[in-house]
Structure formats: C-alpha cells, structure tokens
Design a protein around this nucleic acid. Structure first.
Lengths: 118, 118
DNA sequence: CTGTATCCTGTAAGATACTG
DNA sequence: CAGTATCTTACAGGATACAG
C-alpha cells in the first residue's frame, strides 16, 4: 500500500502539531526577543533588561525560567559581590537561530514594504 | 566614520523591532496554523474549520480578517447557493513559507528529541 | 454554508513595593 | 545586582445562539 496523499489528514495534523509545539515554547510577548538577544552573546539579567526595551523584571525572570525549563537557556550564578547571573543560549537554544533569522528577515522586509508603499 | 559595532544598540533595536513586527502580524493561537493550512491550497471556510482542529467559527473569522487586512490572505465570495467563500494565500502570504517551514521543522525535531529522551 | 452577536472566563502581562 | 510577592487590568479566546 503506497503512501499516497502527502496532503492527507495525518500529514497535516503533524504539521499543525509541529507549529503548536514550537509556538507553545516561544509563546508570549518576550521569549523570541530574549532568544534573539542572547543569540548575540551571553548577558547578565540587568543587561537583558537594558537590551530588551519595555520588559519588566517580573516578565524577564519568568520567561527566562520557561526557556531554561525547555533547555534553551543556561543560567549560571557567579559568587561575585553582589552576585551576578549570566544567561546564555544552550546549543539547543542556538538551534532556533534559523527560525529567528527568518522572523527577523520577514519583519525587516515587511517594514520596508510598508514604508515604500506610503 | 566607519560603521563599526554591528552589535550596536541601533542594530539590535532593528532586530527586536523586526521580531515584534512579524509576531504582531502572526500573533494569537491560530494565525500560523491558518497560514500553514492555506499554504497547501485554497480552502472554504468550512474546510478550514475542519482542517484546523479545535478552532471555532468566531476565531477563524476574526483571524482571517486580520490576515486579509495585512494582505496575506485573499477572500473570494462565490454566488453559489448557498454562497461559498474561498480563502487563499496572496503572493505576499506565500512569502511566509520559509518562516513557516522553519517553525514546522523545529517543532518536528523537538518532538522527536523529546520522544527519544524518554 | 458563512459567518455575527453576546456573554463569560482565564490568563498574560504591567505597576509597585520589597528582599538577599 | 537579581530577582520575588502582590495586586490589578486588559484582552484573547471559548461557548452558545442566531442570521443572511
């Protein structure tokens, strides 16, 4: 029995599930921006706060915990005085780079398109 | 004056803004799934309802309007009896294909990774 | 078949104050 | 510096009923 119908219900469900899986992990207003920020290099909590315009301590803390839980971000505490904490992408977090790149690229061309139209 | 510092505040802001621009347009639980669905071919309203598991008429209608407003989806009404409506991606909507592909690919490998771990 | 109108709820997310 | 605790609010999104 040949595997016809790539456009079958089953194949589509797999696609939809994949979209949901990814977006669940990256859901919310800030996660992608955090990943984008960290893709440029490790940063302290305060550095992220300064780098990501508009985010508050509560949201940043919460989103970082989510990302850490999903293995995308690694958190390292240093016994400086006062303590500092460094956040960086794991190698798994870096696997999001192509995705982030596409999102950035599309957003940039979209803005260009809107500007040229006006 | 050379353009040093690609990692400058300005360059980063452009990235962050691009991410926000894209995600604003694709925000919500359903838009990406709708785009993914339509990327496989034009569909009727009912077809989309059946194809996208769990979505209700209200959300589907609202999200389609949003997508249409942003020029990603084209809506065509046919004077059949009763009327039918066809939705399809515009060429601009199709420009999201690489982005959707990345999201699908990441979601699939993520699910594979979780399965192999257990 | 293709929606809209209402009503209802949970939760994302902001503001503020506080702590080790 | 790096967060947590608490309070509040807006809005996304679901259920149901109805309409052209």
């Amino acid at each position: 029995m040949l595997k016809k119908l790539e456009n079958s219900k089953e194949a589509c469900d797999i696609h939809h599930r994949a979209i949901r899986d990814t977006m669940d992990i990256l859901s919310g207003k800030w996660k992608l921006q955090i990943v984008g920020s960290l893709s440029l290099g490790k940063k302290h909590f305060g550095g992220l706060m300064a780098h990501i315009d508009g985010i508050g301590a509560k949201m940043l803390s919460k989103e970082l915990q989510d990302l850490e839980l999903n293995g995308l971000v690694k958190r390292t505490v240093y016994n400086t005085k006062p303590i500092t904490v460094e956040y960086e992408l794991t190698s798994y977090g870096n696997s999001l780079q192509p995705l982030v790149d596409e999102i950035v690229a599309w957003g940039m061309q979209h803005r260009r398109k809107l500007r040229d139209k006006d």
